[in-house]
Design a protein around this nucleic acid. Structure first.
Lengths: 160, 160
DNA sequence: GCACATTCCATTGACGCCCATAAAATCCCA
DNA sequence: TGGGATTTTATGGGCGTCAATGGAATGTGC
C-alpha cells in the first residue's frame, strides 16, 4: 500500500505527543521521508501533510516561476514558510507546533484523514461536520450525474 | 533535508547576537558555506539569505547579462554591492550589521523564513502582514489553476 | 585606559530516547 | 471454530541531551 487511506483519531498526551497511525508511517517510510511534511491547509481549518512526493510537487510549482520574482517569493513564503517537517520518534509519535495546532483548532485529540497521496489532520468535531458536508456534496453531485448507475452502496455511498 | 523550511522567531540580545535556527545551520553547512550570504531583498522590506548555492545562482544570473552592459553593472551593484557574508559563532549565533537591520526594520526580534533554496529575515510584525498577503495571492492563483485542470491540481489537490 | 568584538561558560526549557503498561490485533494449535 | 498465547500499537512517564539565551572572560584596536 502506498496511499494514505482511512481515518484514525488519536490522543495528544501531556507532552503534546500523538501517535501517527502505523499505516501512515509505513507509507511515509516508503516515500523516503523520515518525518511528516505538514502545513496549514489553504482553504480549510485543517493541516495538509504528506511525504517526499508532496515536497517534490511543491518544489516544481515554485521552480516554474521566474527566479527572484515577487510571485516566486510569495508562493515560497506561503508554502515553505508555513511548513514544518515534523519528526517521528521511535515510538511512532510526533509533536505538532503551536502554530499548526492553532490553525486547525486542535487541542486534545487529532483525526488523521487519508486522502490518497496526502493526508489531513483535523480537530475531531470539526472533521465530523466537514465529513457531513462532503457527503452532502457528493450526494448532490450524484444526482446531477443522473440516477443512471447505482453502484452498490446505498445512499451512503461514501465509506464509513 | 537540504532545504530551508518553516519559520522561527528569535531574540536579539544586548550585544546584537541572534541564534540561527539549527535546521538552517545544518542546511548551510551541507551547502558548503561557513556563514550566511545575505543582502537586502529587492522587492520587500526584508533580507534574502542563503549559502553557496545562492551565491552560485546569483553569479550565473549576472554572467548571463552582456559584459559591460548597464544592466549587468546595475544588477551586480544591487546584489553584490549590498551583500555581506555573516559569520556564525560556535554557539550558532550571528550579528547583523546596522545597514541590513535598517533595511528590514529589525530591532529586537527577527523572524527566519524558509523559502526552500534560500531564506529571508523579517521584522516579526511585518512578516505577519506579508504572510497574510502571500497566502491570499496563492489562494487566488490556485483558483485560476484549479478551474482548468482537475486531476493533478495544485498542492491542495483540487478536491476538498 | 576605554569601546568593541569574540570566545567561553552557565541556565533553562524543550525535545529525543528509553522503558513500562494496557489494549487490541494476530497467530497458533487443539 | 474457539480460546489462549504472542506480537503490535497506543499511551504514559523518567531522564539525558541539546538549542536558545544571558552573562562573564578574553582579546583587539584606538
Amino acid at each position: 500500500m502506498d496511499q494514505f487511506v482511512s481515518t484514525f483519531t488519536n490522543k495528544i498526551d501531556t507532552k503534546g505527543r500523538v501517535s501517527v497511525p502505523v499505516s501512515f508511517r509505513t507509507v511515509l517510510a516508503k516515500d523516503g521521508l523520515d518525518g511528516i511534511y505538514c502545513y496549514p491547509s489553504l482553504d480549510a481549518p485543517a493541516l495538509d501533510a504528506g511525504g517526499q512526493r508532496l515536497i517534490d510537487k511543491i518544489n516544481h510549482l515554485v521552480e516554474d516561476l521566474a527566479p527572484y520574482s515577487d510571485e516566486r517569493d510569495q508562493l515560497a513564503t506561503a508554502l515553505f514558510g508555513t511548513s514544518e517537517i515534523l519528526s517521528i520518534d521511535q515510538d511512532g509519535r510526533t509533536i505538532l507546533p503551536e502554530r499548526l495546532r492553532e490553525h486547525a483548532g486542535i487541542t486534545s485529540h487529532i483525526t488523521f484523514v487519508g486522502l490518497g497521496e496526502k493526508f489531513q489532520l483535523w480537530e475531531p468535531k470539526r472533521f465530523e461536520m466537514h465529513l457531513a458536508e462532503s457527503r452532502n456534496k457528493v450526494r448532490d453531485l450524484r444526482k446531477l450525474l443522473g440516477a443512471g448507475r447505482r453502484g452498490s452502496g446505498g445512499p451512503e455511498g461514501a465509506r464509513e
